[in-house]
Design a protein around this nucleic acid. Structure first.
Lengths: 348, 348
DNA sequence: TTGTACGCGTTATCAT
DNA sequence: ATGATAACGCGTACAA
């Protein structure tokens, strides 16, 4: 058995409660006994037992991470290692540990969360995704358990603490950027519509077009999963239109990579024949050919601020909910240019 | 306060210990009282408290994951989401939870591990990396704490349970494959030499050349970090040699992607002018242009088996250590071909 | 088959 | 400033 507070107490010739106070650095303990106790701890190699401490203090100093379905393609996104880094750093800063749940199906995930929460394993949780009609979110809200979601909640926005980018605005900006370059036929290649992020980006795209007086055409909006095959399908559909787009707003870098490949296979040059702009600015964005113009959404900060606000919520339960918007920035690389003016060519 | 075992006991008119036994499904409890107790649990919405249970039973049913330094480029590798999936599934299967530690510096990581282990937060840990002279590993071994490492340990191989591929053999095979295609000038682009995986792959490469009677040339072996810029540097160095290689063994897909880009910029065609073969076969391998021939190392299984063997070790402490080798497979795509025979061209 | 009583390692509330 | 003592919620040896 490991060395406990009692062993230390015995060695320092004080009561266990005194040792406990020394650990908490209670000011009512004299410096002399503090020193004595600390020496004993040192000599015995004492380390506090988190479990016992949790039981007594009713707080675990651990936060739970709820991942999206592990079978979901988004799980493969380089997005995750980066949020994780942010989360980890934010938690570490306040001496919180990280606990994880994953699952293949939605039910598995839900069960995991219930276990974790009811079982008292964590003081609060962070939802690493935001989708419509989420059972998990409903559960947490119902139980009034501290949580924050990364991304904009589908509903009850006012009553939920969340950390997000302004995806609507970001999408509007990139679309306006393309319009300014002279594009009029701009398509949107989005991911799963169950994710609120997809919806927000789509809305921003539409708003920009409407503001510019450009008609929305249904065939220009395609939705596929965030990953490879999806991108390819989407592109083929678009290119085969009688009046194909000259520019693409793609909801995710990884998907844009797939798009890039398909275009290459079809002999369509980027950015000469087709402009592409995408989101997230993961490492791949600069490793593609051509390097992608992409919206940097500061993934790390998304994680970092989520951890921070959850911890704040845990430690100040009665404070009002708040939302944090992480700034974004368009990183211009080489995948966008002005459209070729087709008409003159026909005339000549 | 949440509903406890006592509340259930009161409602079912039995002793708390009886409730406890029902939870453990102790056969010495009559079906009748079991039923009665279960009804009470249902009605009250009882959920066992993991913390209390852990304290009493001295087991947390949680396993700790030790990540590499979050500042390290390898952390960004798509490798991680995939091992995580495997780990998660392996743990979930046996109803174990996942706990994480990360850190920026080695010391931060070490501190985190010590806290986690001494604090009794987990029953065992998994090292998600394997490097030389690892303080963390030494600590775990010294404390005789259950752990398994993903990758081959640098030393004390016989006394450590680990899960790995046969990277030596894999590297040997891919090199032989290139040799069989007719290549004689084959270079090796490796990552950080502190990681045992890099060493193993390098050794396999060298062995294949030696077996084939091909002289090893020092300039053909370059070491850079696993990610982008590294790859580019490495390639430039190689190409500027008076007798540049015709084929490259690259230690990681992501790095190969960087290599691909640099070659493209330099106007060198793959596979016509340069063959490339790499490792891991992450999603990106098939998304690159051209799609990469890569060694599939079954990342998921690496995680899955690690979780399994750790749990086995936790539950059977006195069993001998074992090592598990996950099979690999070369996935041939489009980045390798026979070398152009330069001489005839000069003659003609 | 079930109940009693104690222990797991801490923190927290009273005392002194 | 410090020491007893009682929780915290559950498992379990021992008793009945």
């Amino acid at each position: 058995m490991a060395v406990t507070i009692k062993d230390v107490a015995k060695m320092a010739k004080v009561a266990p409660s005194t040792v406990s106070r020394v650990i908490a650095n209670n000011p009512r303990i004299s410096e002399k006994t503090k020193q004595k106790v600390r020496e004993a701890m040192e000599q015995l190699g004492y380390h506090p037992n988190f479990i016992a401490r949790s039981l007594a203090s009713q707080s675990t100093r651990a936060i739970g991470l709820i991942m999206p379905s592990s079978t979901d393609v988004v799980f493969q996104n380089p997005f995750f290692p980066t949020v994780l880094r942010g989360l980890s750093e934010g938690a570490h800063e306040r001496h919180y540990a990280l606990h994880m749940t994953t699952g293949k199906t939605d039910d598995e995930i839900y069960e995991g969360v219930v276990q974790m929460v009811q079982g008292g394993r964590v003081d609060g949780v962070i939802l690493l995704y935001s989708k419509v009609e989420d059972k998990v979110l409903a559960f947490l809200k119902d139980r009034d358990f501290p949580f924050v979601v990364i991304g904009k909640p589908f509903s009850d926005e006012e009553e939920i603490t969340y950390v997000d980018n302004n995806n609507f605005r970001a999408a509007k900006e990139v679309t306006e950027y393309l319009i300014k370059l002279g594009h009029k036929q701009i398509a949107f290649v989005g991911g799963n519509l169950n994710l609120t992020v997809t919806v927000e980006r789509l809305l921003g795209y539409e708003k920009a077009l409407r503001d510019a007086g450009i008609e929305l055409v249904n065939e220009y909006i395609v939705h596929e999963e965030f990953l490879k095959e999806g991108g390819q399908e989407a592109v083929r559909e678009l290119i085969s239109l009688t009046k194909p787009p000259t520019a693409l707003v793609v909801a995710d870098d990884l998907m844009a990579l797939g798009v890039l490949n398909t275009l290459d296979e079809m002999g369509i040059k980027v950015p000469e024949d087709m402009s592409i702009i995408s989101f997230n600015n993961v490492l791949l964005a600069e490793m593609s050919r051509p390097p992608l113009t992409s919206v940097d959404i500061n993934i790390f900060d998304l994680g970092f601020e989520s951890a921070r606000s959850l911890i704040y919520r845990i430690e100040n339960p009665r404070e009002p909910v708040k939302r944090i918007i992480i700034p974004h920035k368009i990183v211009k690389r080489c995948s966008c240019s002005s459209p070729k003016t087709e008409e003159p060519q026909i005339v000549s």
